[in-house]
Amino acid sequence: MSNSSDILVSARGLSFARGSRQIFNDIDINIKRGSVTAIMGPSGTGKTTLLRLIGGQLQPDSGTVTVDGEAVHALRRGQLYQLRKRMGMLFQNGALLTDMNVFDNVAFPLREHTDLPERLIRNLVLMKLHAVGLRGARGLMPSELSGGMARRVALARAIALDPMMIMYDEPFTGQDPISLGVLVRLIRLLNDALGLTSIIVSHDIAETAAIADDIYLLSGGKVVAHGSAEDLKQSGSEWARQFIQGLPDGPVPFHYPAEDYAQDLLSGGLA
């Protein structure tokens, strides 16, 4: 195992249940500083839940999550908020504040957390917007943006406070090929240029695998496979191969569990 200071985020023995449904069952995850790590798995495996656990928005049933040496769930509210200032998060649909324009959305965390003069805030916001290529869109309202643009604005907002890490929740879902390409490139570029650590939750295999240094495959509340994209393609796990290659049938059955087909038809709904 690598030196612990190389690890920015780690989950140890993490378990979490929603009602009677066990979402995570004793999982261990390490995320290296400066890397782009992908968390992949079928829909409903709790990938987003994992991000919320890392961000301290949910409490695990057992186990710990450590971010930059601090145990997230042992922190007091004020300390947690201090830690969150160093974490950026990109929500699935951007989650821009709909009553403000693009500029004010990006300026929002700066205005809330700093006493910088307005001129400096303007420069900072324009720099962040320029980095995502939307300096010219500063006057638009969120409702006037396409899905891809909204995510880029949200990305500019997420890096406004120069965080140490960014978590991406399904950044590629529902994007056309051009904005997909832009987002993929931006995530890698920002990660390397700003010295960030990125965590991407996604089930878009090709896009994610192209930029991820490290991939965790989750299923049924467990880490099924872990390694680089190459490792996983040659993985011994049949499940990982099914997932990576997108095969319709395999260890994950095509059919939702049901009673016997013939029996079901013959019973005529009278059973």
Binding site: G55, R84, G88, M89, P109, H113, A154, L161
Partner: peptide, 8 residues
């Protein structure tokens, strides 16, 4: 949620 994650 986004505000919470921005520490607001």
């Amino acid at each position: 949620s986004a505000m919470e994650m921005m520490a607001i």
